[in-house]
Amino acid sequence: MKYAFYPGCAGETTAREYNSSTLAVCSAMGIELVEMSDWNCCGASSAHSTSRSLAHALTGRNLAIAEKQAMPMAAICPACFVRMRETCLQVKNGSLSKDEISSLIDKPYTASFDVRHILDIVTAETEAVKKLVVKPLKGLRAAAYYGCYLVRPRELTGFDDTENPVSMDNLLESLGADAADWGGKVDCCGGSGSFTDRSMVKELAGKISDSAREVHADVIVSACGLCQANLETRQSGKNALPVVYFTELMGLAFGLDARKWFKKHIINPIPVFKKRGLL
């Protein structure tokens, strides 16, 4: 299957290792990700907080570019994913007309293709994943963290359960890891306030890392560049818990060179993997 790949702003900078590990594991699975040409920022919560037309126009331009490539869009950032999907669904159900969006962006757009998150794409192919595992992540206790925008709001994301999602847990188990049952799965890390309300973000990120420590997790596993950066840099100081991407763990289990991704982290995860005999 071919997808128009939208890396998003963080995928180019702070979440570089998420981007490159995604490309590597998808290529191993035979999922073709074609980077979109000349994409722009989705506008994130800033456009959403400012004006509905602006929010739809910024996502709409990207959607039109993917549509021109005649492929569904695949995004790695859950926030970009949910914003794009919102515009796509509104055009599909007619609450935003094709003419209106096309005139805002000066490009035709008819919502003919879907928008999917990469976690959804890979977890739909568990058998293909299992076949590629050459180094099972035995002994690694992993806390799957979904955050907000993969599962909420339900009618937009169309993915898993809003309170107790399990798709990433199942993926981790098929990689051979031990997925911890824990209470922080869908708690908000405060990401959208990371620049403006540091004390709130510290409190929220601190609570999430504390719950993961309570169940003796070795790592928190994330599917979002913003959450990952937030949890890595804002969690409480003692016994810092590494936060890795699910795609990095897939790469490690597939026998790919995961060390180069791990080196990019602010909290170095390499010692944990060494302790478990995985590196």
Partner: peptide, 20 residues
């Protein structure tokens, strides 16, 4: 936060992508 959104969007208007 309102000031933040203005600065953020001002950057997007200029560059198209976020310049952190």
């Amino acid at each position: 936060s309102a000031a933040f959104h203005n600065i953020f969007l001002g950057g997007i208007k200029k560059n198209g992508l976020l310049f952190e």
